[in-house]
Amino acid sequence: MSATEARAPKRLPLAPHEIVLVVILAIALAVLATLSDRFFTLDNLLNQGRLMTEVGLIAMPMTFVIVTGGIDLSVGSTMGLCAILLGYSWKNFGFPLELAIVFALLVGTVAGFINGWFITRLKVPPLIMTISTLALYRGLAEGISQAHSVRGYPEGFYLLGQGEVWGVPTQLWLLVVAIVIFAVILARTTFGRSLYAIGYNETGARFSGLPVDRIKLAIYTASGLMAGLAAWIFVSRVSTTRSDMGTGIELDVIAAVVLGGTSIFGGVGTIAGTVLGLLLIQLLKDGLALTGVKGDATIVVIGAVLILSILITNFAQRRREQGR
């Protein structure tokens, strides 16, 4: 533990990579705002917040998971499974809607717990475990629903996904709360510091007496729970339940987290970085669309920004290390 603390990054308000991101984001915002007068409006920004909530919620625990050197590829499928079970239990089991929602969140939690259990108890590598549950959970969603969609929820159900509270999209409040909670946990608690320790050197963390397995089990379970929450919001936003929901969202989430400077090797990363990564991707997509760039070209830009930003940070880091 002492060794890791000695080498842990100094607690600057923003890490170098985050400064790179803030600069890129500021430039992008300035350019896009001059190109389209409809981009930098409160209305548009709030709306973008609504659209990025699901990815954002899942990105929070994903940051934790990646900080420990793990990964969770099953989140999109977990989301699909939760969405299907929300609709299915409401329609076919006759659950009241509230119970169906709780059930869906529970299913997400269990799905995440299963990942965590196999990863910690049976030492299945996270990538493999979550690739197999990526297929398994999606398969269950398709098998259970037989790809029938569930529609016709009562009006009140749509408040979360389509409504507003105090002029701000309902789900955005949830995202803000989640960001604050996860940021505080990661930066200010022993639990958060243990995540860095595990990611930096798992064996070392174990020897210094950290309950590594319990911590990992907790974050994978949290990942499942947040995927369930995202499923609920998503169903409420698009007013229907389909088994293909959330397909490929894991790549969007991982792109945001990695762009935010969390190292895929573990040990480095912040929630602030992830939020910056999220904002950058969402606003780039939106801004480019508003200035008339087509969707396919936007995907290319996002891919290039992802590689370049990591590249810049790597160079900066190496120069600092050489300078020392």
């Binding site: 998503f234 698009v238 293909d244 929901m245 397909t247 669309a289 087509k294 969707g295």
Partner: peptide, 21 residues
């Protein structure tokens, strides 16, 4: 303009952006 895969959420985002535009 539209998504490269027949995904509902992507399609919704595209339409939403164009409403703003």
């Amino acid at each position: 303009d539209g998504p490269t895969e027949a995904k509902i959420d992507e399609q919704v985002k595209f339409i939403d952006n164009y409403i703003t535009r």
